[in-house]
Structures are given as C-alpha cells and as structure tokens.
Amino acid sequence: MSRLKACFERLSAESKKALIPYVMTGDPQPEVTLPLMHAMVESGATIIELGAPFSDPMADGPVIQAAAERSLEHHTSLHDVFDVARKFRQKDDQTPIVLMGYLNPIEVMGYEAFAKQAVESGIDGVITVDMPPEEAEDYIAALKQYQIDPIFLIAPTTTEERMQKIAAVASGFVYYVSLKGVTGAATLDVAGVVERVSLIRKYIDLPIGVGFGISNAQAAASVSGCADAVVVGSAIVNRMAAQKDTKSEQTTIIVRDVTELLDSMRKAMDSE
C-alpha cells in the first residue's frame, strides 16, 4: 500500500485529519530543510509537501515566489529535492512526501527519469501546478509505473465535468485550492469551502486536502471540519522570510517558529 493511502487510513481510524505543511527545498538555506522536516513531523505534520523551486512560479503569490528566488540563489535543483527526501527517509519511513513544483524542470529531466529517481528517493506523490489532466497522459503513465500518486488541484472554478476528468486520473488525494487567486492571498470563506468540498465528494472518492489562505490555528480547525487534510504553505514560508538571523542560528529559530505554528494548528484541529 502506498504511504499516502496508509497514512489516510491510519488517520481515519483515529478520527484525525491530516496536517500538510509546505516547505520550499533550500529556503532560505539548503541545511534548513531536512531538520525542519523532522521537526514538523514531531509537531503533528502528517504529510510533507516539499517544494521544488521554479524561476517563474505563475500560480504562486509573492511569498512563494520569493522563497523560490531564495532557494535558486543556492541553485537548488530537482536532484537536491531528491537528496533531501532520501536523507529524510533514513530516519522516517512513514511520513509521506509530496513533491510540488512546475512542469519545466520535470520536462527537462524526462518524465520517466524523474519518476524513477523520485520513487527511489522516497517521494510518494507529485503535484505539478501547470499540468492539467488534459496534457498529462505520458506524465501520469510514468508516475504510475513507479507507484507515485499524481495529485491534482481543484479550483473554485472547476466544473463538475472537470471534476470527473480529474477523478479518472488522480490518486493519493486531491487538493482543493480554496481561493481564486494565487497562494498567500486574501482570506478564507469557510462556508464556501464546506459547500465545494461536499460537491467534490460527489465525484471524487479520494481524501480531500484544502489549502490556500490557511494561516492560523482557527482557520486550520474550521477547514478540518469538512476536509481530510489541511495544507499550510505561505504562513510557513513567511516565517522563513521574516527572520534575518545569522546563519548558525537560522535553523534553530525557523524550527522554533514553524513548530509553534504547527503545534497550535494540530491542537486546534484535534479538539475540533
């Protein structure tokens, strides 16, 4: 059974919801990512979304774009993302890792070479923001050949017809983007999310993660009322951007701030 499937089954048995933090690999320094991933798991993260930087992240807001720019200053490549995942797996064989990025770096590597190296480094699912199901036939075939879950986004504008199209190809979970707009924008409309999530459930028999606009414990708790997973992105990345401490203290401070946020979210979600 895939790590993602096992993870959602375990949570379901415990009546708990998944908490999925997003971190950009190599932001703000390459050495921060690995210890942060382990610390996030200790603070209640159930799945880790590991960002692969791209120079032109069109679907992301300024927060994630800045994270990509910081990461690319260190020339972070897909090989570095694989490397972090491989090292993470030496200590943690249970927590699923989902790689999130844009298509062009994957195109350059080749779908099959990408899928092979991803699975060998312990990656369980892939979200490619600019790859809709219509273009994805070869990409999905390559991922499935290596038992990697292709995870697709669903937007407030996604029609019921498209939901069926996505249902036909997605596995692992689907990711509902709870806002029109880019990552890190505006505020959350919880009632709207509840309505959309129940519509998605009509067509898609997979766990549903909700992300975009979830920045504090209260938002995480209210979304976890209807969703199977809560994705936290910009709120974490903001904490990378905010601190300008010396390199030696950087990891300690980032870990402290991020785990504080995740602890509060986990607590609020579990008591919901």
Partner: peptide, 20 residues
C-alpha cells in the same frame, strides 16, 4: 482542437484558469 502545433502549444495552465 486542444491547441497543439505538432508537439508544441497546448494548455499548461493552473486549474483555476482552465474554465476561463
């Protein structure tokens, strides 16, 4: 029909824009 000129073109957009 889906915007391909040989292997080029197509629609590689985020889900939010597909309907638009």
């Amino acid at each position: 029909e889906r915007g391909h000129f040989g292997v080029y073109g197509g629609i590689f957009a985020s889900e939010t824009l597909m309907q638009a």
